[in-house]
Design a protein around this nucleic acid. Structure first.
Lengths: 160, 160
DNA sequence: GTTGTTTCCTTTGATGTGCAAAGTATCGTC
DNA sequence: GACGATACTTTGCACATCAAAGGAAACAAC
């Protein structure tokens, strides 16, 4: 097997890892990866707007509405009209939502961050260069850069 | 921004590239990425069974049935009872299916393969090592290794 | 060759994700 | 105050996916 094949296998494994994590999450925490990501965004400040979720997750507002509907139905968050701008809806974290967030299995990016941190300085540089190279090769350059993996974003002291 | 963040951004860009490719494909070729992948598997030998598709794509047979249903409805493939084992259904490529396969936009992996091939020998080695390292970091090691990207598998002389 | 088990596939019914288009309410601005 | 932009919801749809149940054929064992 040549290196092209091996590289593609490795890439596929990486993508697959995010899918597997999504299934585990659903099984263990009883919440889907997408819903969990919404919960993470809400959790950052304890509240947020539909617009922000839509922007950050790159999905339509209609999708956000249905996502939040589900979370409301399950008691994870509540809706409340914003006082400052009454067009906006504030989405507030509930205790149950916070608990779900706290008890969720180790997110992918934390796993990554831990292992990355354990690497030698030169190794980190090499790895970063390689990943950026691949990203460029795939022409995935229209993304507004946010430090995220498939599920969840890198905030809340997940590193350092 | 530190290297952990940059690495995660690069990873996210890579994953995002596969999603974007899926949307382009649907727009341009009028077929979804998942259905296209089925078509690719059928196209390898001109025919295949539902079981093989199910195994290769890691989805249930029920899913395969509905996927093939759609392709049949669109005239991309036909079903035919296998003569050797009448439990099996042979899924055969039609001319239209073949045409769709041939005319599909440059798949991600071909883009990758071309650029990878253009790299220096030592660069290829470094990149491969990096990718495998990341795959390991994400613990995506339960995958039966097949040289695939998100959509489609690496066959049909897509490389070399 | 009948019986039991396994395999392959489909059907049915459900969930989750996602969007477009149309509608409602509110904000800002001229 | 009228008009256009913004934020969100509603409606109606498509796709991907599975679990469970069932039919049909193959296989194995007696």
């Amino acid at each position: 097997m040549d290196r092209v094949d091996s590289s593609l296998i490795a890439l596929r494994r990486i993508i697959r890892a995010t899918e597997l994590y999504a299934r585990d999450l659903k099984q263990i925490a009883g919440i889907t990866a997408v819903q969990f990501r919404v919960l993470q965004i809400v959790g950052e400040k304890g509240h947020t707007t539909a617009k922000e979720i839509s922007t950050r997750m790159h999905v339509s507002q209609a999708t956000v509405t249905s996502l939040v509907d589900k979370l409301v139905r399950e008691g994870m968050v509540t809706r409340e009209k914003s006082q400052t701008d009454r067009r906006q809806t504030d989405i507030l974290m509930t205790e149950k939502g916070q608990a779900t967030l706290d008890e969720a299995p180790d997110p992918l990016q934390q796993r990554f961050v831990r292992k990355f941190a354990a690497m030698e300085d030169w190794e980190q540089s090499m790895l970063l260069a390689g990943l950026e190279r691949v990203a460029l090769m795939l022409d995935a350059d229209d993304l507004d850069a946010a430090p995220v993996l498939d599920t969840g974003e890198l905030k809340n002291g997940a590193h350092h």
